[in-house]
Design a protein around this nucleic acid. Structure first.
Lengths: 341, 341
DNA sequence: TGGGGTATTCAAAGCGCTTTGGATAATTTG
DNA sequence: CAAATTATCCAAAGCGCTTTGAATACCCCA
């Protein structure tokens, strides 16, 4: 069913039908009702492609999902971020276009979005410290919002981020308050902006208590369960082993727990653990009492906010283009006072 | 840069430029080269929307991501399935359109895809036993491939599935071989087709060894970590507690492990566990020796195969439209002989 | 009763591409 | 060397919609 067919059916011009459907004022209430009824009855919906061509707006947002070529790893937070963003898109009539791309040719994917003109804006994931995509995208001229920030970026850009520094500073302070002095950090890859900020928070807390950060207690890598396990095992095998561990992802924390328990130690008593928690829907941190003490911020909510911000930008609203969310520190069962051995 | 601009630049007609770019034979090699070079130099790529309108093909595939309204849960396997499918789409010039939708109005989402004509085909996720979407989609007339199957479906449909029955039958047999007699099943929601098949496999194995399935050992629900934990705790509190547990998801298995270890028991020694493993990229089951004994089948590969099948269907190739993948049973450290108490 | 608004409706152009049906130039053939 | 192919190229139509500019019908008030 096309506009033409529908208008013929109604004995009206396509112009009028189009206007009636799109809520323009220059059409009488009577015909608007008739048109709406007929459209519903015949299951008419405008062809997106034709409409996009005519209006110059694709009514779609692009997401580029980079796959780590080395590890074939999909970031587990994408699903939830996407779910949050998707809710907002649906509500506003936007589609979500995903492009899965090996991280080598990510830039190519953005360029292709721009030249093929099939999206009105982009969401950028996982920015690194000095992310080349930002100047690149500023040139491209497609509106975009970054999930995260890129330190050292010279040009301004729109972003939604969590206060990673603060979250890790507070977590570290909590551990210090509990008497821990040797605190390990299992972090994400440090060229990632979020990881750098988290380390900064961790170190700041230590320094402010007069403790010199010990680089042999800091690790960065892919945030997998296996990685968490292996690092924990090697940490706990050391004579000067840490009494507490700070972890950048709940998935990694699961591996840490496994490593601890394999040694017959008890989490929260023998070793304390605080993790960053993205509040993933398939891995909620305990229903009543949180399993892990955690700094938590919903990545799904971040998705919603980023999507809304992007839509506002596309529509020329001049709402704020920077949003810093605070993570909340929730006490679970994985922390306890440092034991003196 | 539009086709017109590019053709003006070259002193050629849009027709010729279009043909040159699309590999039609009626254009000389010389001009084809010139056109290709100019296109590259000016970063020209055809406007997707215009092309789609002209050809009648959207060059996009739709995925509907249903969100469980009750639990706000995103299925954790989507990310990996999507990654696999996305690879194939990119290779074939297709975009992936995602629609996040509360599971109440999923049907509406499909209808909207069809009437708005912005995709050439659909991937259907998580079919239930007697899935209403199949007759519905057969009427709609959009090609689609189901990830999974729907028992009792009367009409034929294209699908890619894992042999769930066989996988759980084999897993159960392994546990029986190890001397286990009381084996619990922590399954997904049983209106889901995969869950029903898994239970069938489990029961068949028991019956063939003369054991009557005990419904008090079978559970079905959302496959979350918390659920795995809670069910395990209550199972192990019983006097006639099971010596082995069969689990439908590795995420749930993590919760089971936590429950077991909280009681001071050891996985693989005191309680055996076999889990279904989708080989999620962020949760690989051990790098060298698998942590869990598992029936494994890569959901990412399933994504690839489903995508390829759909593209073949769209292009009118008459390749097979049913694909049953076998899961492999890998021995890890979570199984051991039944202990006699 | 007639001129100036106002409320409705419509015809036609245009979005950027593909594709049909020629046209023209180059080449081959009898 | 004229006629028939063949190789290249192009003008124009059309995909289904929105939107500009104009037409028509209706109403009001002097």
């Amino acid at each position: 069913m096309t506009l033409k067919e529908l208008s013929d059916l109604l004995g009206l011009s396509p112009t009028t039908v189009s206007r009636a459907l799109n809520g323009y004022p220059e059409v009488s209430e009577a015909t608007r009702k008739k048109v709406a009824a007929a459209a519903r009855a015949h299951g008419y919906a405008p062809n997106t492609r034709a409409r996009a061509l005519a209006t110059g707006r694709a009514m779609a947002i692009g997401h580029v999902i980079p796959i780590s070529a080395k590890h074939e790893m999909v970031n587990p937070i994408f699903a939830d971020f996407t779910a949050g963003a998707g809710e907002v898109y649906s509500r506003n009539g936007y589609d979500m276009l995903m492009s899965v791309v090996s991280d080598d040719d990510e830039e190519q994917a953005y360029r292709s979005f721009a030249t093929k003109r099939n999206v009105d804006g982009l969401i950028i994931h996982a920015p690194s410290l000095n992310d080349g995509r930002i100047p690149f995208l500023n040139d491209l001229g497609l509106p975009y919002v970054v999930h995260g920030r890129s330190s050292n970026a010279t040009a301004p850009y729109a972003w939604v981020d969590v206060n990673n520094t603060r979250a890790f500073q507070r977590a570290t302070e909590l551990l210090l308050d509990l008497g821990h002095r040797r605190i390990a950090l299992l972090n994400g890859l440090e060229h990632m902006d979020f990881a750098a900020r988290r380390r900064a928070g961790y170190e700041a807390a230590l320094v402010s208590r007069g403790i010199t950060p010990d680089s042999s207690l800091m690790f960065s890598g892919e945030m997998t369960e296996a990685q968490g396990h292996d690092l924990t095992r090697s940490l706990l095998a050391r004579p000067d082993r840490p009494t507490a561990i700070l972890v950048s992802s709940i998935i990694m924390a699961i591996g840490v727990r496994r490593g601890i328990e394999e040694l017959g130690l008890t989490l929260g008593r023998d070793v304390s653990l605080i993790t960053y928690d993205d509040d993933l829907s398939y891995f909620r941190n305990g229903s009543d009492i949180p399993v892990y003490t955690a700094t938590r911020s919903s990545v799904r909510e971040a998705g919603r906010r980023a999507a809304q911000m992007l839509i506002d930008i596309i529509n020329g609203k001049d709402s704020p283009t920077e949003l810093l969310l605070e993570a909340e520190l929730t006490l679970g069962m994985s922390t306890g006072p440092a034991r003196r051995d």
